[in-house]
Amino acid sequence: MKALVSIKRVVDYNVKVRVKSDGTGVETANVKMSMNPFDEIAVEEALRLREAGTVTEVVAVSCGPLACQETLRTALALGADRAILVQTDEELQPLAVSKLLKAVADKEAPQIFIVGKQAIDDDSNQTGQMLAALTGWSQATFASKLKIADGKAEVTREVDGGLATIRISLPAIITTDLRLNEPRYVTLPNIMKAKKKPLDTLTPEALGVDVKPRLKTLKVVEPSKRKAGAKVADAAALVDKLRNEAKVI
């Protein structure tokens, strides 16, 4: 069984994000980039399935500029068998990514496609769901546990009320939640080995996908600064402020 995992190159989670002065987006020049943490969880899950003997091949896919190769190398260093970059300098929105991933899925025919539930840059939380709609495959989002047996996937999902466990048929799209696993470290010997693993490059044109943005970003602004706090004399004064000023109780 083949597993595909999608990888997004995002601003590293340790970086303090700054909005560009013209308000068109966030600054990404000279900023540390790394793999979207939810995608790391996706890679880890695929690797565990391979180590358990369920999956035979793990293929990492990324869509974006040439620099995404670096992020794919990290996926290879984690243990993916090979990687595919759909290279484009166009701004990619979730629907475009879903279409590209569908095109790759058509070529690769995986039984399971594991996707991070969302990327930490735009927090869209759409790609997995749209990919499921486009492929017509079953989907299980926000997975915190995944078991595969007899051609079915049993997935525990994190939902508002608690945990929901569902059984779906394969092929399927799984989106990962935070508690699915704790990703392993990339080790130095594996970084070296990853250099020899195949990394193929495709283009949206070759896949016949129109990736033109359909949504327009009007303005990006910094969150408003937190206002200074105030000290109150006693609990009664606090209750009074909460009730009459903040109007939250």
Partner: peptide, 15 residues
């Protein structure tokens, strides 16, 4: 180099 970045990144995560 990109290699060094990847290596140092791996080390930093562990640290």
């Amino acid at each position: 180099s990109p290699d060094e970045d990847q290596i140092l990144d791996a080390i930093s995560r562990w640290l």
